Amino acid sequence: MEILQAKSVNKVFYRPAPVEEHSVVGKIRGWFSPPKQQFKVIDDVSLAVKKGEFVGLLGTNGSGKTTLLKLLTGILQADSGQLNVLGHHPVKERKAYTQKIGAVFGQKSLLWWNVAIIESFQLYAAIYKLSRSEASQRIEELSNLLGLESLLTSPPKKLSLGQRMKAEVAASLLHRPELIFLDEPTIALDPVSRLNLMNFLLQLNREHGTTIIMTSHNMADVHHYCQRSVIMNAGRVIYDGRTSELLSYEHFKILEIKTLSALDEQLLAGFEYELVEDNYYRIKTSNDQAKETLSRLAFQPQVADVSISPPSLDHAIHHFMTSVRE
C-alpha cells in the first residue's frame, strides 16, 4: 500500500541577480528593488513510497534532497504538483499530518539546548497529547532501546553529538509515527554510535513496520540498511530502484591479496592495482577477466590470503551519475 505519493512536484527559489545598470538612477532602483533570478530546486519530481519501506535519498550537495524532505514534511509548500502523504496534504492538513510523522534534520535540533532531555520529551508528549502514563512508558521504552537512561537529566549542550542525535530520534518517535524522515542522521557520528543508531532504525523498520526515508552521504549505511535508493541530481530524480541493482552499473570487481612477500612486478603487469600497505594489494579487474585474474595471482606461493568483491556503492553511484550527465 502506497502511503506517499508525489506527482510532478516543483519548487522554485529566488536569488539576487547581478545588477547590470550602471547609471545612478539604475543603481538606486536596484537598491530598493533588487533584480532576482529563479532557479528550480525541485524539478518535476514524482515519487511513491509503500508502507514499511526503508528508502535512501541520495545525491550530491545541492541536488535537492533536503528541500524534497521539507516539502514532504510540510515545512515548505510546493509551487506546483500533487502531494499526498498518509492521506493528508502536508501543508493544508498540517496539524493532523504531523501527528503521524516524525522528522529529524541534522542541522536543526528538536531539543531545547539548556533544558534536560526528559523535559523536552515531556513537552513533546504534551504536544502530541499523550497521557502521563503513556508518555512515561514511551520515554522509558525509547530510553532503554537507545541507551539514554543515564542522560535524561542532562541538557543537550552537555552531550556528545552521537548522544544528542539518539535523543533527537527518540523525541521524533514518542508518538509512534507511521513514517519518519531523517536528514543525514549519522553525520559526524563515531562508528559505534553510527552502528547503534542505524541498527535501532532497522529494528524499528522490521519489527514495527515504520516507513523510513533517509538522506545520507554514507554509502555504507545506504548499502546495508536501505532496500531502495532514490538518487537526485539538479532537483530531478535520476534513479529510483533497489539499492543492490546500483552495483550492476559498475563492470569490475576488486581483488584483495595479502602476501608473505612482495609480488613480482611481471605478475602485476597490465593490471590496475594499488599497494595499500606492505604486502597488501588491491587489484581492479573487469567482470569478464575476474576469474582469469584470480587464477593467475591467487596460487602464487607467496600469497597468504585472497578475497574478491564487487565495487563499493560510492563507485557505482559515481559511475551512474557520470553516465547520466554525459
Results as ranks from 00 to 15, higher is better:
Ala103Arg: 01
Thr73Asn: 09
His89Trp: 06
Thr98Gln: 14
Gln37Lys: 15
Val55Ala: 03
Ser63Thr: 04
Thr73Ile: 06
Ile28Asp: 02
Lys36Glu: 14
Phe105Trp: 09
Ile42Phe: 11
Gly102Ile: 12
Pro34Asn: 07
Ser46Val: 01
Trp31Gly: 00
Thr60Lys: 13
Ser63Ala: 15
Val45Ser: 02
Asp43Trp: 11
Val9Asp: 13
Ala6Ser: 09
Gln107His: 14
Glu53Gln: 15
Asn61Gln: 09
Thr98Ala: 04
Ala103Gln: 02
Thr60Trp: 00
Arg15Asn: 06
Ala78Arg: 12
Gln38Phe: 08
Gly26Glu: 08
Ala78Asn: 08
Ser80Val: 00
Gly56Cys: 03
Gly56Ile: 09
Lys50Arg: 15
Phe13Gly: 04
Lys50Pro: 06
Leu71Lys: 02
Ala96His: 14
Ser33Gln: 12
Phe39Leu: 06
Trp31Tyr: 03
Tyr97Gly: 09
Gly59Lys: 00
Glu93Val: 08
Leu110Asp: 05
Glu21Asp: 13
Gly64Pro: 05
Ala103Lys: 00
His88Pro: 02
Leu69Ile: 07
Gln99Asp: 09
Thr73Arg: 05
Gln38Ile: 03
Gln77Glu: 15
Pro35Cys: 11
Asp43Glu: 12
Ala6Glu: 07
Ile75Gly: 01
Ser63Cys: 01
Pro18Asp: 11
Leu72Gly: 02
Glu21Trp: 10
Val85Pro: 04
Asn114Tyr: 15
Ser109Trp: 12
Val9Thr: 06
Tyr14His: 14
Asn84Lys: 15
Pro16Arg: 11
Gln37Trp: 05
Lys40Gly: 04
Ser8Cys: 08
Asn84Tyr: 06
His89Met: 04
Thr67Tyr: 06
Gln37Met: 13
Ala78Gly: 02
Val9Lys: 04
Ala6Asp: 07
Lys27Val: 09
Gln107Trp: 08
Leu68Ala: 06
Phe105Ala: 00
Gln99Ile: 01
Glu93Phe: 13
Gly59Ser: 03
Ala48Trp: 04
Leu86Glu: 08
Ile101Arg: 00
Lys70Ser: 08
Ala48Pro: 01
Phe32Pro: 00
Gly30Arg: 09
Val19Gln: 02
Leu47Cys: 02
Lys100Met: 10
Ser109Cys: 02
Leu57Lys: 14
Phe13Met: 06
Leu69Glu: 04
Ser46Thr: 09
Ile42Gly: 09
Gly62Tyr: 03
Ser63Glu: 01
Val85Gln: 05
Gly102Cys: 10
Gly56Trp: 08
Lys65Met: 01
Val49Gln: 01
Lys95Phe: 10
Val19Leu: 05
Tyr97Ile: 05
Val24Phe: 13
Trp31Glu: 02
Pro18Met: 12
Pro35His: 05
Gly26Met: 00
Phe105Tyr: 12
Gln77Ser: 14
Glu93Ser: 14
Leu71Phe: 07
Leu57Gly: 07
Leu69Tyr: 05
Lys7Asp: 11
Gln82Asn: 10
Gln5Val: 13
Lys70Glu: 14
Gly59Ile: 02
Asp43Arg: 14
Arg94Asp: 14
Lys70His: 07
Leu69Ala: 01
Leu110Gln: 13
Leu58Gln: 11
Gly81Asp: 08
Leu68Cys: 05
Leu86Pro: 05
Ile42Arg: 11
Asp43Leu: 11
Leu83Pro: 01
Leu47Gly: 03
Leu57Arg: 15
Ala48Val: 13
Arg15Ala: 12
Glu93Tyr: 11
Gly87Asp: 09
Lys51Asp: 08
